[in-house]
Design a protein around this nucleic acid. Structure first.
Lengths: 146, 146
DNA sequence: GACATATAGTTGTTTATACAACTATCCAAA
DNA sequence: TTTGGATAGTTGTATAAACAACTATATGTC
């Protein structure tokens, strides 16, 4: 059996990520409106650092699905904003360990609330069991392609 | 009942569009490997022009969910590649109508095949009915936020 | 017809992504 | 211990997105 369930007219939104783009834009707007001077991409790096900081840039690459130059520049910008600090590893001098600052620790609660709010708006009226199926499918898609 | 089905650890992939990013990267790789000198974003504009060309840049904005400067520059680059042509409208001189060239007409079949191939790889082993649920949820998400 | 307003498109700036090429450091095998 | 390959990170370049500010044209109202 073919998996070819996409008529031409349906290719588009899957490939362009229409839904996730809309979610990201909505969250960015909430950041801007609340005076949170942060891009979604910067937030996504902080998101992983809030779970654990002191990790290498390479670990941030893996966690955020970005390449090394992207992380270099995101960390550059986060450092300019005084939200993270590069600390050279003592054991391995190739490695920068990335630490949160006091300022970025304060941002966690507020921005996570806005993120949850955004997802609740996005998923308004969608039944729980359909959300679960959707999450499952998207995870398989990712696993199929990684 | 709250729609708050996202534990903190699950927020991330929905907001960042992990799955659609993976799909776009895979398709871009297929374009590159096949010598198709085209970005996914340029392709997404051509995608709508293959359905109908001679439309205004504003109509392309609506169709591709981009703002006007983004379309201006995508059309700039497509024009440099000789894939589209701007033609000033006779009725309304503010409007550029965008037309496909012979070269871009040739690209349609090949790139659509690569796009379908990509989606089939992405959705490998996902049952039809779950794909349908997923498409439905993503559409509702988009409608909820637009 | 004149003017205010809306619409279509462009340009400038900042941030981000992808890829290639590069430096510095580490490590393991000869 | 030397050397060659792997790993961590940076820099250069092209493309793209978002936002603000801008020009040009059209339109509706007085």
């Amino acid at each position: 059996m073919s998996n070819n369930h996409f008529k031409k007219g349906e290719l588009y939104s899957f490939i362009t990520g229409k839904a996730s783009t809309a979610i990201a834009r909505r969250l960015q707007k909430k950041f801007n409106d609340s005076g949170t001077n942060l891009t979604i991409e910067q937030w996504s790096v902080l998101y992983h650092l809030w779970k654990q900081d002191g990790v290498s840039q390479q670990e941030l690459c893996n966690a955020t699905f970005r390449d090394k130059p992207s992380i270099t520049r995101l960390v550059d910008n986060l450092e300019k904003l005084n939200l993270v600090k590069r600390v050279a590893s003592e054991n391995d001098r190739r490695i920068n360990k990335i630490y949160l600052t006091k300022q970025s620790q304060k941002l966690q609660e507020q921005t996570m609330d806005l993120a949850e709010e955004t997802l609740n708006e996005a998923l308004n009226s969608v039944p729980t069991e359909k959300i679960e199926v959707c999450k499952e499918v998207l995870q398989i898609v990712y696993d199929n392609l990684k």
